[in-house]
Amino acid sequence: MKKFFAQAYIWLLLAILYAPILIIVIFSFTEAKVLGNWTGFSTKLYTSLFSGSVQHSLIDAIQNTLIIALIAAAVSTILGSIAAIGIYSLKGRKKMAINTLNNIPMLNPDIITGISLFLLFVSFGVTQGYATVILAHITFCTPYVVLSVMPRLQQMNPNLYEAALDLGATPGQALRKVLIPEIKPGMISGFILAFTLSIDDFAVTIFNIGTSGLETLSTYIYADARKGGLTPELRPLSTIIFVTVLILLIIINVRSQRAAKKKEVL
């Protein structure tokens, strides 16, 4: 009986939590301009999303979002991994100082990160656009990369690296053949995390995108929603984003579960 009520509560909460998303998914399969009108099953919104008959600006926004996310995630992964190796070998007050600074972008609300970077760019007369958005994204993504690489370094046997050097490997070889393979899973998780965070971001982007008409998906949706008339193609797009996030999360979870099992065996 207790179990029945518990299950009922969980399912009810999930139903409420997913109802809005489900409505978007369902109404992505009909042509109606206004959400909530069902005019029969159709995949027209999907084809028009991909055939380019949709407004050019939406396609541009999607492209910008992906390019920014790829560059930001790649740079954060490299910067964060190098930093993690460095921070790992640091000691004492310096380590604490850099760790504290590293935590700030994660603890700060996005609006503060966005405004503080906005003030930085205007103070130094930097024109806002692609570059400032990417720099801003690197700023809030890199701490997460550092956090996902660090545990791999802590788990690693420190003698492995030294052994490679003793056996005649150059520091470069030891890095490539020993250190990087060890931290690679952390780097991949960090990259995926940075990529999703960048795609997802709105609050930091809106303050640093400038007024040149550059749009990411988030700012496009915001501008679109403010005008009141939502582009119908946003429904299939949201559906695709939802499914992609679902698949990515499953991959990450399976990976970490497998890693946990491996650790148990060892």
Binding site: D200, S218, S238, I241
Partner: peptide
Amino acid sequence: WINILVRTL
């Protein structure tokens, strides 16, 4: 992990 604007919409 879904965009907050998409969720709000």
